[in-house]
Amino acid sequence: MAIEGDLAQMGAFLGAGLASVGMGGAAIGVGNVVGNYLSGALRNPAAAAGQTATMFIGIAFAEALGIFSFLVALLLMFAV
């Protein structure tokens, strides 16, 4: 019983750790969005101001997926 419980917990924690890798993906995504925005903005500074909102929407979508992986990690650690 005790061993079984420990094993299950170990699996959960391993899964949580693996899920955290997803944050790296979100980081790459957000970095892509901002980097491309910045390079575009430096090429055409006049159009940059109008696209800031679009950039934030893009960041939000990219980041949401990272947050999902964080959520999965938390669920594995605490809820399963």
């Binding site: 939000a60 979508f61 949401a64 947050i67 999902f68 964080f70 959520l71």
Partner: peptide, 13 residues
Amino acid sequence: VSHSIRLAGNMMA
């Protein structure tokens, strides 16, 4: 789902 979890997740994290 994403709308709510984004906010809560960011705050919580």
